[in-house]
Every structure is written in C-alpha cells, then in structure tokens.
Design a protein around this nucleic acid. Structure first.
Lengths: 236, 236
DNA sequence: GGATCACATTGATCTAGATCAACACCAGAA
DNA sequence: TTCTGGTGTTGATCTAGATCAATGTGATCC
C-alpha cells in the first residue's frame, strides 16, 4: 500500500498519534497522500472548506490579503501540523507551499465525522488549536505594538525555537544556527513590515554582532541574551 | 441553590448547551458564580492556569503587554463566551472586566477532567476555539497591513456585528446603532493605534456622514456600504 | 568565461501616524 | 453655582518606517 499510516514519518507527532493500530487502518482508508510543489496553493481564501490535511513534509504559509495586494502571513505550518478548517464551511485564508511538500489529505466531511467518533483524536485537535491560538495572540502583540527592531528579533527567536523542534539537533533550548525556509519578502509579510525594513534591521543586528548571516537564508544567533532583550524592549 | 445551571441565562449559548440535564447537575457541582467589578482582573498574564470560566454577564478584555506599558487587546469576551486556557499550564494573557460582570468559574483541573469525560462538551469547546482562531487571524491582517482608516472602519463593522448577537435587536444583519462597552483608549489598544488617531478617524467618518456619534460611547452607522468599502480598501 | 534573472542591500526622500501640547466637555462634589 | 478630574478632540510637530531608486550578489544557463 502506497498510502500507509503505519510507515508515516509523522505518525507519532501528528494528531494521528491519538489513534491505536485499528483506528489507524480506518483513517488510512479516508486519506490520500498528495505532493505539492513549492509555490502551489493547497487551499484558497474564501473557498468552501472541502479538505483538511496533515503536513507530512515541507512547509506551508497561511495568508490573508487585501484587494490591492497587501498580504499578511498569518501562520506557518511544518511537518506534523494540521491544515484546514474542520467543522466550518469557509476557509478564511490561503495555504501555499513554501517548499516542495507532501500532505495527507482528507475530505472535510469524512474527517469531521471520523473525529466525532474518536474523542481522543478530537482532544488532540483541540490541544493543537489552543496552542495555535496562543501563538497567534502573541503575534497580535507583535503586530500591534512592537517596533521593527523588536519584531525582527522576536521573529528570529521564534524561528530558532520552532526549527529546533522539527530538526533533530540540540534538544530543548534554541538553535544556534538555522535556515529560514523563505526569503525576505515572506519575512516582511510575517512581521507586517517592508522588505527594506527587514533587511536594514538584519544588517543592524549583524553589525552589532548579535547575529551572523553566512548567507541570505541562514542565520546564526551569536548573542541570544541580547536578542531576547531587543525582542522584549527594543534596547539595542 | 444559588448556583443553578438550570436557571443560567447563558445555558443555551455557552458550551454547557452540549450537556443534558443530568450532566448539568454534575458540572453545577464543580462551578461557582463569581462577580467581578469593572476594572478587576480575573486572570493574569504569566500566571499558572488554575481556573477557567464562562462569562455570564458583562464584558472582558484579553490583553498582552510589553514591559514599558505598551498594551495590545488581543480579544474581547461577552456573555456565553469561554475564558481561560484549558489543557495548558500558563495563561498567556490578562483577562480584565470592562464592566461589572458575572462569571461561572471552574478549577482548571476539574474542568479538564470533566471535558475529557464528555466528548460533546469538548466538541463545543473545539468549535469555539476554531471560530476564535479565525477571528484572531482576521485581526492579524488588520494589525499587520491595514491603514488607520481601514482599521477603524473594520472595527466599527465588527462591533456592530458582535453586539447584534448579544442584544435581542435586529435579526441577522448589522446593528444600525450600538453602544461601545469601552472608551477611546481601549479602541486604540484593540486597533494598535493611539487614542488621537482613533479620535481623528472617527471625526473624519462623522464629517463624511458615514457614521453619527450621539455621544462618545454610542455609534450609529449611517452608510454601511461606504463603511464596508473603507474597511476593505481605504477608499473614502 | 559572460549574460540573465531573481533576490537582497543600501541610500535618499516622503508620509502616516506618533508624540507633544492645548483645549473642550461633562459628571459629580462642594 | 463653581471647581475638579477624567475623557475626548484638535492642532503643531516629529519620526519610524514606507516608498522610490540604484546598486550588489549569487545561482543558472549558454
């Protein structure tokens, strides 16, 4: 079988980890694995919510836009994250692959029904949703009240945190060095800034030896204490 | 019995509506009704998550702050809304009463356990959390990418929508006139602006006959089409 | 190697919204 | 009635970050 939950690389981290072997077989029948090329969209803002999915490999962004093209990235998804809007009829955002990716897709109605029949699965989904809500609320403080320097510093810390989870490197704490899965424009769209401002803030941090930039995608944190201070209060 | 779910005014709208009479009796034993004066906090940012609650009466704000006092309102709560962080150990925000209020409080550990034993209740909680996540994501676009005029217009439309729900007035559509449950500073903290900018935008809308302001707390929408246009694209 | 293209940095200028500063309005107290 | 304190408006100025405009850089293809 091509599409086997038993062999799935994220089965222990995704919501599926709530299921026992029998149930895995059952949900397996409802799912299909789909490959998505970098740049391709999986879900469109405003469309009916017809599918949900688990990210198996790669990375995605959630975006919401205004008619004139201004765009805000409202979420990022990595392997084992859940995508889509269960129990609701509209998708309020677009989901686009940032890199070549694989997802495990369900029809929303199948999934909704399966979830209702498996409370442990629903519990996992609730926990994820609550965690995501906390994260999103944190970014409201960032977008509403932080300066450009604070935003960039907060962002770098959060990325080092999240990428530490998914890579198999240093346990626990932050990662010293990591590769951003996206370019400057995307960083700007996450932080509610322009590409130029992001660039200037990064070079500033570099000049002050808070970070090093081996190349445009890689970031090395040299002084995480100082970065933390900048993130919280803006003190250089 | 003072504390009777049977007679609760929000029992049909709060998550409790998932429970049958027997279960209501059971959850009743876990809860106590608490009155909170306007301005008092129910939960503090950074504290351990020891309680959760349903709002019975009044209104609350969720806030997150920076050390120097900058504050962002990251959510508003009205009767029948759920407060607090179940299945997690820290509160990431402060919850403060905006008006004299009543809540129905549970110890978090009691509540967590009860929820796990009642999948229908957990389902309601999940639905609410998903809806809230959608709402919060919408405000990320507002905070990250909208101009002051767009923010104020969006805010007025959202308030007219939400207050229509809780009051027993016009069914469905927006409310023509409504009373904001808070002052200009709070509006500023919701929109990531200063009090002066909010004030200027409001008077601008008044001058253009898009809204009327009978007094500082009351707003009447005169031309909701135009308000909608301003909210989405900024065209005056 | 050079040409091309996409992306990032850097610099010069502009502007939306912040900040600073009066002033207005209203409710309650004396 | 006047006084007083809190809240809101309005005006003048300032500035962080946007916008406009080159200029760099590095990967891919010939």
């Amino acid at each position: 079988m091509i599409n086997n939950c038993e062999q799935c690389v994220v089965k222990n981290k995704a919501i599926c980890s709530a299921l026992d072997p029998d149930e895995l077989v059952a949900i397996n029948r409802l799912s299909r694995k789909v490959s998505i090329k970098a740049g391709q969209a999986l879900i469109w803002e405003g469309d009916d919510s017809l599918i949900v999915a688990n990210v198996v490999e790669g990375a995605f962004k959630l975006t919401s836009s205004l008619e004139d093209g201004r765009e805000q990235i409202i979420g990022l998804l990595y392997p084992s994250d859940f995508v889509g809007r269960p129990f609701g009829d509209k998708n309020e955002y677009t989901v686009t692959a940032l890199a070549d990716s694989k997802v495990c897709v369900f029809s929303r109605s199948d999934f909704d029904q399966f979830v209702r029949e498996h409370p442990d699965l629903e519990h996992k989904l609730l926990q994820r949703t609550l965690t995501e809500l906390d994260r999103v609320r944190r970014s409201m403080l960032l977008l509403g009240r932080k300066t450009a320097a604070e935003r960039v510093a907060s962002f770098l810390l959060e990325m080092s945190d999240r990428l530490a989870d998914s890579s198999c490197s240093v346990v626990g704490g932050n990662l010293e060095q990591f590769a951003l899965p996206f370019g400057r424009q995307q960083v700007a769209d996450i932080l509610g800034l322009t590409i130029e401002t992001v660039s200037r803030q990064m070079t500033q941090l570099k000049k002050n030896d808070v970070i090093a930039l081996p190349d445009h995608r890689n970031v090395q944190i040299l002084d995480s204490m100082r970065l933390q201070n900048i993130a919280d209060a803006g003190a250089a």
